[in-house]
């Protein structure tokens, strides 16, 4: 029942250490859920969801998002997959471009670049497993030409990066990025 004061000290330090470890782990694990200025929120500042919004030039003091490459032009598209599959369509006249699809906590779900696509045109469909089983019953004609990514994610965003080799290519790439399509599958046939 009664402990010597030495044992009391050891016990106190042990309980401080174990409590600190538990709190430390809880804080680290809860940050992704509680962070309010995630990339998913930051991307929404540049335009409405379900369309590619070009990000401003990456320059000192006005970086649209941290750690973007100043040699690239970027376009981002935010989406909620539960609303329906997301179709990406882009044709970018840059020597290098890439697209990454990320979930709301910023983890890369899928990524490719213009060499892995194998053509200059990107046609990609992001779809949940349930939506894919519905789509298979009545498949659109061009389904064979699409890169279909079946992912059970809820919210996310895609980031398109295009390398600008020189100034005179800049406007051409800017136009290509702003006309890149990110949106509904059924509306896409109109373009």
């Amino acid at each position: 029942m009664s402990l010597s004061s030495g044992a009391k000290w050891v016990l106190s330090l042990l309980s401080i250490a174990s409590l600190a470890i538990i709190v430390h782990i809880l804080v680290i694990l809860s940050i992704p859920q509680n962070a309010t200025h995630r990339a998913y929120e930051a991307v929404a500042l540049y335009g409405p969801d379900r369309q590619f919004n070009t990000l401003p030039e990456v320059r000192a003091g006005s970086e649209p998002l941290p750690a973007l490459d100043p040699a690239m032009k970027h376009a981002a598209c935010r989406f909620q997959l539960a609303d329906g599959p997301v179709l990406f369509h882009a044709s970018i006249p840059a020597p290098f471009w890439s697209i990454g699809v990320f979930n709301a906590s910023g983890e890369a779900i899928y990524s490719l670049n213009n060499r892995t696509v194998g053509s200059d045109v990107l046609s990609m469909l992001l779809i949940s497993p349930e939506q894919l089983s519905i789509l298979r019953e009545n498949p659109p004609e061009d389904l064979e030409d699409l890169i279909v990514i079946e992912q059970p994610i809820k919210d996310g965003f895609a980031l398109l990066r295009a390398f600008v080799p020189s100034h005179y290519k800049s406007t051409e790439i800017e136009t290509a990025l702003s006309s890149a399509y990110c949106g509904w599958l059924d509306e896409a046939s109109e373009i």
Partner: peptide, 29 residues
């Protein structure tokens, strides 16, 4: 970092700083 196999520390660092990682199919930083 920035992939589903990332450790909890880099997940926390990347989400908190709103940093978009370079995905494996894009390249490496």
């Amino acid at each position: 970092a920035g992939t589903p196999e990332a450790d909890p520390y880099s997940v926390a660092i990347y989400t908190r700083s709103a940093r978009i990682p370079m995905a494996p199919g894009e390249g490496l930083t």
